[in-house]
Write a protein that binds this DNA or RNA. Structure first.
Lengths: 117, 117
DNA sequence: GTCATTACTTACATGTTTGTTCGTGCCTTA
DNA sequence: TAAGGCACGAACAAACATGTAAGTAATGAC
């Protein structure tokens, strides 16, 4: 995000996978926590600390980074209220909701793959 | 694969995502090249060198690693023929074929996401 | 006997992701 | 006055993913 990447093969190859809608999509939901967060959000609005408690093993830093990334990618909506103590709520966007049925199928495939190996 | 991982938070957290069928599934198709390889294989049988030519920007090492990983995960089948020079062919398994319709949906979602951001 | 072909493998280098620890600004409660 | 909750941010470190360059074994062509 912050640091500019070099013009290396690593970066040029990254372009290949960004150009493909499929690999691009997988990137958006990839990483260690995003899908678990989406799962937990479901149809609810949750605060930063609520998510933090749910995923006590995840570092605050990761939670923060993933939420920010998903917000930029239009997967979640962040609403901050100027109260004391501050309140910030996160919820899925319509775009993320459209993923749900696809993810259900992927989940089933995952179970099947796991059984067959 | 070869080196044993330590009993770190990193490793313990990995268990969390392996326990979930969904994140587990995404891991199996994650990484930079696997989906592109599956895409290219389609219904064909392709040799190592044919894949290498198709993905000239991908290093041989990566091709080899990804193919091996996908074979272990039951996504592709490797057939080696004791000829000279050696001939090795790769093709998708039934399990991988079941992914195709799901991936099509993901691809569509990816295009939509890309347009909306 | 030298060389090319094929499908890899190994050692090393670079780049990214994830985790640890500490700090911040605002206000409330004790 | 002190302490604590909330929602983060920054600096650093560990682990992993990816890329580079070179080498291997078997064989057949020349």
């Amino acid at each position: 995000m912050t640091t500019r990447k070099k013009n290396s093969t690593y970066t040029r190859n990254e372009q290949c996978i960004i150009n493909c809608d499929l690999t691009y999509a997988v990137q958006k939901i990839g990483g260690r926590w995003k899908l678990l967060l989406l799962d937990k959000l479901g149809d609810k609005k949750l605060r930063f600390n609520e998510l933090k408690k749910e995923f006590s093993y995840m570092s605050e830093r990761m939670l923060s980074l993933q939420l920010k990334s998903m917000e930029q990618d239009g997967l979640i909506k962040r609403s901050a209220y100027a109260e004391t103590p501050p309140r910030v709520e996160y919820e899925m966007t319509e775009l993320a909701r459209e993923l749900a049925p696809i993810l259900d199928q992927l989940r089933n495939w995952g179970r099947k793959q796991r059984e067959s190996v």
